[in-house]
Design a protein around this nucleic acid. Structure first.
Lengths: 149, 149
DNA sequence: GTGTCTGCAAAGAATTTGCAAAGAC
DNA sequence: GTCTTTGCAAATTCTTTGCAGACAC
């Protein structure tokens, strides 16, 4: 009975509401600042720190820089966000997607490339060709596109 | 005739001598500082800035931090070094290897994984499965090992 | 000799920290 | 009520810059 109610309740929850659930499920206390940062990342998908700051400022969600640093760190630790770095420039981006996935690096943006088949192909190859390569946690393919300009 | 002499000369050249050649061939003027940094990277293979600084200091190759920054930047621009970032922590390492290659990320170290076959497998797969994905400059596979501890 | 590179010191950015008040649960 | 989080300001760390003298070619 309660289950049915919860499911119903979930189905009418807003996206923002789901985000607060995720924060709580990750074991973090819910604060307006954390909600704002997570909501921002839901929109931005991949963003550098300063892009997050700009986004929050434009929204009128003012908060201290040190708070943003602390929140982003806690989100990464809690597996709410992951990190991805541009192989060309070394710039680090926070990524709303935490499950194993690949990336296409274009000139000014990063695009997710979620392809389990590619993951499997790489893992299979490594297993066959390099059985001595044990304890692989995950593999990540970076696809770097030409900077045509 | 000159060619033979050059080859002979090359065959007896020290590793350090070869390094100076590379710096010159990259179009950079040869300075003791640049030679020291390049030699350091030849030993370290992958290193963060502070590891390079420590190495140089231990060797007695003192030079200013700003010089090291400037040299590393010029080396990256001249394609004498490349950059590689740990996907787990985002730490950036300079890499003595510039040609396309893959990496295995272990707990405290990065190991090169040079495997053209893997590169081809990934490229072939992408071409077949995603022909709309054009202008691929290169692909790079990151193999993240478990931090067993 | 000319133009680039280095050392130095200072400026400028980026990130972290301590602490008191506010807030979550 | 207790323990955590935030804001603020300061400290610290990291990186870049301007300039004069040194050096490569």
């Amino acid at each position: 009975m309660r289950k049915i109610c919860n499911n119903f309740a979930k189905s009418i929850k807003s996206k923002a509401m789901e985000n607060t659930e995720k924060i709580k499920l990750a074991g973090l206390k819910l604060t307006p600042q954390r909600t704002a940062v997570y909501n921002a990342m839901t929109t931005l998908r991949h963003a550098k720190l300063d892009e997050i700051v700009d986004f929050l400022n434009k929204e009128g969600n003012m908060m201290t820089l040190s708070t943003i640093y602390r929140i982003l760190e806690s989100f990464c630790k809690a597996n709410l966000l992951s990190l991805v770095c541009r192989p060309d420039t070394g710039e680090c981006y926070y990524d709303i997607t935490v499950k194993e996935h690949h990336h296409v690096f274009e000139k000014g943006s990063i695009v997710d490339f979620d392809d389990q088949e590619l993951t499997n192909i790489v893992l299979d190859y490594l297993k066959k060709k390099n059985p001595e390569l044990k304890d692989i946690e995950r593999v990540q393919v970076q696809i770097i596109k030409q900077n045509k300009q």
